[in-house]
Design a protein around this nucleic acid. Structure first.
Length: 998
RNA sequence: GCUGAAGUGGUGGAACUGGUAGACACGCAGGACUUAAAAUCCUGUGCCCUCAACAGGCGUGCGGGUUCGAUUCCCGCCUUCAGUACCA
């Protein structure tokens, strides 16, 4: 039979499901290997061809590892809490759980038909109570923990209480809030329960605190820093503002250093690591305290250039700094208040766009430089951020360009501090070279010496010390939304208390609608009678999207367990993820939070590995090729010498508006280009063509104008100035590879184009193309279902791999898919005779056949190990082409070839494998590569003269340099190329090249 | 601005440690089969000069350098993409 992909694929997908072919067990003599995909959010749109790219790669890898004798865990699940289902619920009243279930079913159907080797018995869904019970449980562990800086790990909160009981708080070294109290053991004993809880909250790894958050009014919720891009929400693109709110936070900053250090131990793409490093933003410097004149206050600043401290000519506070009001003198009060008001008006975006303009206001107060005793003015300016460092900086104009601009703008002194600084009257010179001048007791020192000396001096004087600062902030954990994990907390006397472990899961209550309450509380405030023990308020925020995804790889290890998030034995066996494939957009979100929770779980002894994902590969995004139909419209002016009556004016404006965009009439793209082309340097025929098009469109305008009695009072503007160009997305299904639009069907089937007129004469109608992200609204989504129906899953899998390197982002087009399909048919035909009957021979293979086979065994093995899937597809084609030329149908060759191809095209390979008389591929092994078959006695050496390749010459591979040189020079053709010139030198690289230098 | 990645035929891309640039595939052109089309098969296909062959010249973003030899290494520049941005 011919290659019947549909029947074959259905058959084997059923077989795999029935036989649980890919079920992994946590006990095996084989070494373990854990291949993980980033689990999807099941959106309503279903899968497009870009989604499976990473899944196909990981599936090939998983199947390959099984053939190589590994016990492979390759699971899949759904990150099923999220915003779209909730917004759909707000619009339609449909419960998010229902929408989610429907979407998951679509995803599952689509995933199944691609033939993935997932162990579905381990499926997880983050929105299932049996799953989020353990997300809540982890939250509770975090609440019950503090970070001990002495042991450098998280510990149970009870060890902190013991320390309070034994020695009070003075000696505690913890990652905690800044406003912790200093107290003696006796004080602690006398604290009321509420006071104790309040104090402990400042140490817990998840805590409630008044903090400045990113508030998104349109979504009605707060967002984490990584969910905000350029002042807009990542999802939905709504504006985000800063707001002070009581919020749950995760003390991820406690782990900043370990998150940074861990990056050096994992095999991740360098850009990913770099993004995380930037996000953590470690900088080392010093903190210095400046005394405020006529006050007890000390302003602490953080600087990375403590060596420049003698060059300080002013200090700046962030406008939001809490001391601004009390440090402003009465004389300056109005100015400062005015400046703060102005700053507040600016949105985050304005502030960023405004980066180059210098602004600020003087408080009237002076502070004292602790090293020089000099008094310098205290300013406020919005270039200082309240959220970073201490919200106060010292200004050193000679060494920092921003400080230089500020000083220049406000006439503050610019003091040179290093003898090597140049042209500081033109711009700042941030050099660290040279010796210090004008710098008191560090004069004459070099950079390193000065920093060490100053840090010590500041510490001795008690006015500062060396300090390491991180940009990363604690992660805001609460979301004012419905469709998320409820936080297992209730409030008693305004203080948060955890539920008991046995009370988990705290189920998401039913509510009447999915909007905030009338009093502005989160949607959970609508749940009637939803109270702990019938009287205490539950926390009304839910967890953020990243909560459920920050530990899910552990759940796959033991997905059904209701006693623990996973059996410790399973965790001990599977340990960590060996290969993780997913998009790079999760660099500072999911991947960072997951590393954080993993380290925490390890500290508490629930897992063993410091890092969860040993190797990470980012698949590139597949983007779409949108198509556009173009239309035009007119702008026209009026004859200024003739005045309009009111009536005329009115009808003129109407006509003007009507023809600004001429709807329902489209022009083929080459005509649009013609219209856009300039008047210069063109022949008359173009001008004529253009005039013809335009007069066609202008005719109705003229008629309308005449009817309104406006003829002669209106000017056609010169072209192309007077034209407007418009483009409309056309569904790409109606556009062929030559960019021709099927206008008949488009007009019939797409309501937007009903009754539309295309072109002037019904000729071929061209669209233009643009590369855009695939999305429904751009009508450029390619659905894998269609391709699978046409070519089968094996072709789709191989084609997606053939498209290019996995990591590279690339536009999708279906141009080459025929080639891959033809390859699979050709492969199928190797096993069949002319009449499409399955025929293989048991003859011994020839040397050439063995060579082809072992070349591909070696190549594919190497390619998969370095994730170069596209190159192995080419190699398969070469192998099959070679074997076809050799007319090879020998079992000894073909059986091994099937095993090598199986990870890429599993269905066709299972079929052939069983036709060859074997059980199924789960019993197969990857063929052993034998280098003997590739040994050659001869090699066609490229002979080059002065590095230019001239010819090939067959030489024995046993020849060494001397003999080879002689043989080359003895060759007539070589002599011909040399043309009498005598070689100066001959380079001979065995098995590679001969180069003759003349 | 900073950080990172990348620029190769008409197109997607290959060349893994400096050693035959353009594998494999698409597209295109020509041919076979066919009444015809589709499908299939065969041949050619980087550019330039040439009727053509032989031969030659030019070619991996641009300009230099190192080397017997550079897509690969070094220096400078240009372009594109991604991330990030008043971070003190």
């Amino acid at each position: 039979m011919d290659y019947q992909f549909a029947a074959i694929e259905e058959k084997w997908q059923k077989y795999w499901a029935d036989h649980q072919s890919f079920k992994a067990e946590a006990n095996s003599d084989k070494p373990k290997y854990y291949v993980l995909d980033m689990f999807p959010y099941p959106s309503g749109a279903g899968l497009h061809v870009g989604h499976p790219l990473g899944y196909i790669a990981s599936d090939i890898f998983a199947r390959y590892k099984r053939l190589k004798g590994f016990n492979v865990l390759h699971p899949m699940g759904y990150d099923s809490f999220g915003l779209p289902a909730e917004q759909y619920a707000i619009q339609t009243g449909q419960h998010p759980a229902v929408t989610t279930e429907t979407n998951i079913n679509t995803y599952r159907r689509q995933l199944d038909q691609i033939g993935f080797s997932f162990d579905w018995s381990r499926e997880v869904r983050t929105s299932e109570p049996s799953y989020y019970k353990w997300t809540q449980w982890i939250f509770m562990q975090l609440f019950n923990s503090w970070y001990n800086l002495e042991t450098d790990k998280a510990e149970h909160i009870s060890t902190l209480i013991e320390k309070f009981n034994a020695a009070g708080s003075a000696e505690i070294k913890a990652a905690c809030d800044e406003d912790t109290k200093t107290f003696m053991p006796s004080d602690w004993a006398n604290f009321s329960d509420a006071e104790k809880q309040e104090e402990l909250l400042k140490y817990r790894l998840t805590y409630l605190k008044e903090s400045t958050v990113n508030w998104c009014p349109a979504l009605g919720t707060v967002l984490a820093n990584d969910e905000v891009k350029d002042g807009f929400s990542e999802r939905g693109g709504y504006p985000v503002e800063q707001k002070k709110m009581m919020q749950w936070s995760m003390r991820i900053t406690a782990y900043a250093e370990r998150l940074l250090q861990g990056l050096d131990t994992i095999d991740w793409p360098e850009p990913m690591k770099e993004m995380q490093r930037n996000w953590i933003g470690k900088s080392s410097g010093a903190s210095v305290k400046f005394n405020v004149e006529n006050s007890d206050l000390q302003i602490e600043v953080f600087t990375t250039r403590v060596d420049t401290i003698f060059g300080v000519s002013y200090l700046v506070l962030a406008p939001e700094h809490e001391w601004v009001a009390q440090l402003t003198t009465p004389a300056q009060k109005a100015e400062i208040e005015n400046y703060i008001a102005q700053t507040k008006k600016k949105s985050e975006l304005d502030r960023m766009a405004d980066a180059k303009t210098v602004s600020g206001a003087f408080t009237g107060t002076y502070v004292v430089n602790p090293v020089s005793g000099e008094r310098v003015p205290l300013w406020i300016a919005d270039y200082v951020l309240a959220g970073y460092g201490t919200g106060a900086v010292m200004g050193v104009p000679s060494g920092d360009q921003r400080d230089w601009l500020f000083a220049t703008n406000f006439n503050l002194p610019i003091v040179q501090i290093l003898d090597s600084q140049k042209e500081i009257d033109v711009q700042a010179d941030p050099t660290k070279e040279g010796k210090y001048i004008n710098s008191g007791f560090i004069n004459g020192m070099g950079y390193k010496e000065a920093v060490a000396f100053l840090n010590q001096w500041l510490e001795d004087q008690g006015v500062g010390k060396a300090k390491i600062n991180y940009r990363q902030r604690d992660a805001i954990f609460g979301r004012q939304r419905y469709w998320g994990e409820p936080i297992p907390v209730y409030f008693k006397d305004g203080l948060p208390y955890l539920l008991k472990e046995e009370e988990l899961p705290l189920l998401l209550p039913e509510i009447d609608k999915y909007l905030p309450t009338e009093t502005g509380e989160p949607p959970l405030g609508r749940a009637e009678g939803w109270k702990y023990e019938g009287k205490y308020e539950y926390e009304l925020s839910t967890m953020p999207g990243w909560a459920g995804s920050s530990w899910y790889w552990y759940r796959y290890m033991d997905a059904q367990n209701d006693q623990a998030f996973a059996d410790p034995k399973a965790v001990d066996y599977w340990k960590d993820v060996d290969l993780y494939i997913g998009g790079s957009e999760h660099a500072t979100g999911h991947l960072l939070y997951s590393r954080f929770w993993n380290k925490f779980l390890k500290d508490l002894g629930f897992s063993k590995e410091e890092e969860p994902f040993k190797k990470l590969i980012n698949q590139g995004m597949i983007v779409g090729e949108s198509a556009f139909a173009h239309s035009i419209g007119f702008n026209f002016g009026e004859d200024v010498t003739q005045k309009f009556t009111n009536e005329e004016r009115e009808s003129y404006d109407k006509i003007k508006e009507k023809y600004r965009f001429i709807s329902g009439k489209y022009l083929s793209y080459e005509l649009i280009e013609l219209l856009k082309s300039s008047n210069d340097l063109e022949d008359n025929s173009t001008t004529e063509k253009r005039q013809a098009i335009l007069s066609h469109f202008w005719k109705p305008v003229e008629e309308d104008l005449t009817a309104a009695g406006l003829k002669g009072k209106v000017n056609k503007l010169s072209l192309p100035l007077g034209l407007n160009f418009y483009k409309t997305h056309v569904p790409i299904d109606y556009v062929n590879t030559k960019n021709e639009i099927d206008i008949i069907n488009l007009e019939k089937n797409d309501p937007r184009f009903n009754g539309a007129e295309f072109n002037l004469n019904g000729s071929v109608f061209l669209s233009s193309r643009e590369i855009e992200k695939m999305s429904k609204s751009k009508f450029n989504v390619v659905n894998p279902d269609v391709l699978i129906a046409q070519y089968g899953a094996d072709t789709l899998r191989m084609y997606e791999m053939f498209l290019g390197p996995l990591e590279q982002s690339k536009p999708w087009n279906t141009n080459g898919i025929e080639g891959v399909f033809k390859f699979l048919r050709k492969f199928w035909r190797l096993f069949h005779n002319e009449a499409w009957e399955f025929t293989v021979s048991d003859e011994a293979p020839s040397k050439a056949e063995l060579k082809s086979l072992h070349k591909i065994i070696k190549k594919v093995q190497e390619d998969i190990e370095r994730f170069s899937f596209n190159t192995s597809v080419s190699s398969f084609m070469i192998a099959v082409n070679e074997l076809t030329d050799l007319k090879c149908n020998k079992r000894a060759i073909l059986q091994d070839l099937v095993a090598v191809l199986a990870p890429y095209a599993p269905h066709i390979c299972e079929e052939l494998w069983s036709l060859l008389g074997n059980k199924d591929l789960s019993t197969a092994q990857y063929p052993i590569f034998n280098p003997e078959y590739l040994v050659e006695d001869e090699f066609a050496y490229p002979i080059s003269i002065n590095g230019k390749m001239k010819m090939n010459l067959n030489l024995s591979l046993t020849l060494e340099a001397k003999a080879a040189e002689e043989a080359v020079l003895a060759n007539e053709q070589v002599q011909g190329f040399l043309n009498g010139a005598s070689p100066k030198k001959i380079i001979f690289v065995k098995g590679k090249i001969v180069n003759i230098v003349v």
